[in-house]
Design a protein around this nucleic acid. Structure first.
Lengths: 232, 232
DNA sequence: CGACGATGTTTGTTATAACAAACAACAAAA
DNA sequence: TTTTGTTGTTTGTTATAACAAACATCGTCG
């Protein structure tokens, strides 16, 4: 058999899962929207079976909330839930930064992160905020990957998914207002220096500051909503 | 409307999910076993559709590992994975204990935990180790619930599910060998006293000690296996 | 005797239909 | 006008069948 094909084709529900996940993370669904299986199936051009698998998986991950009749609704994020999320994220991501600082790393990976950091700063200066988000995410997870603990990275990713929409439409204006990159450079510097306490402190400060800014935007009911949403 | 019926009937896949979850946690499946949808469906007396939902959910939670052809296999736990699990658990559960110590609590809940603690000690003395496990779990989660952060409790529960089988057949003989209840009483005492540092330290020590004991039981390949399993 | 290939079986994937519960709309009665 | 009962629609749930890929079995050829 000459076939080295290694087909490794992905199932339909995996595609649906990825698409839904990205849409949620990008904030393309209004919080409170009920996602019906048949409408999703129609938009994907498949049967309801694959989208049911995808939605089941997303609900299990906590990305989607399950409504009254086991319907999947894209979750609102209250100030309280954001606060809880912040506690868990600080524990997890702070620990990841600490573990990263305790290891010795290749120069290549360190240089890559530093390059990303400088491109992030130039993106801020140029007000290219759409592409900043992606770099922001990759910088954080680049640090977390340096912990060498896949389970930790996976759990952190789960938490990001839960607060994804809120981050997506608030971080850009936050980062241009504040001096947010401060903690990023400090954290990376601490990791390079092997300063575990400093790395954890800076990452926790980065998360806490952003969360504090977000919490100040909540309305009277404690709900966090998209501030402007200038739909093109 | 006289109807107070509150039907609240659970779907079949929810029952299958709960049964599988409990079986995993109790260690009734040998690690490495492939769970086929049709055989599970037959044992549950249902179609494959509900069990597919349940398995999908368990895989999404990381409780089950997905094998080569997207088949679900009950995961082996290597020494390395146990180590990673321990890091995450310490970060999470230590934080939960810390948060619990920072709050003021009802006397009722505190007394309930203390009662559970004394029954645990008497169970150890009487060598009733099967029922000890359940109390052990409820004591820990009783503390974590006192953090007042449901997301934190939920995430911790997820981690317990991942190492469930190993704990189930090792903890009993561990707890009778060592003076394991020491950390439990110390942690609860610290929480009552509002000593956040002490509460975190004791819970972390409890987890670390048990993990260290488990790691010493790994075979040459780094796999953790059921030590004796005296099947009745 | 050993290796290669055909064939049947197993197993996850997907589509479809039938079903039940919940919601919405409308009409009729108090 | 308000309330109530009925009906039609929506939507998640479950079963079943068809399908494709992977694995096992076994026969045939070298």
């Amino acid at each position: 058999m000459t076939a080295l094909k290694r087909i490794e084709r992905e199932p339909l529900w995996d595609l649906a899962h990825a698409q839904l996940r990205d849409a949620l993370l990008a904030g393309r669904f209004e919080p409170g929207t009920v996602l019906t299986l048949r409408s999703l199936a129609e938009s994907f051009g498949t049967s309801i079976t694959p989208v049911r698998d995808a939605v089941t998986r997303l609900v299990a991950q906590g990305v989607l909330q399950q409504g009254p009749r086991n319907s999947a609704i894209v979750p609102h994020l209250s100030r309280r839930e954001l606060s809880d999320l912040t506690v868990v994220r600080c524990a997890l991501e702070g620990r990841a930064a600490r573990e990263a600082a305790l290891h010795r790393h290749d120069d290549a990976t360190l240089r890559k992160l530093q390059e990303r950091l400088s491109t992030m700063q130039s993106l801020i200066a140029a007000r290219k905020l759409e592409s900043y988000l992606e770099h922001h995410r990759k910088f954080h997870f680049g640090i977390y990957a340096m912990s060498g603990i896949p389970l930790l990275v996976e759990t952190i990713e789960n938490m990001w998914l839960r607060c994804g929409p809120v981050l997506s439409y608030v971080i850009p204006e936050y980062v241009v207002l504040l001096k947010g990159w401060d903690h990023h450079t400090a954290a990376l510097k601490a990791i390079v220096a092997g300063d575990a306490d400093g790395a954890e402190r800076e990452i926790v400060a980065d998360i806490s500051d952003a969360a504090h800014y977000l919490a100040s935007l909540a309305d009277s009911t404690g709900q966090l909503r998209r501030p402007s949403l200038v739909t093109s």
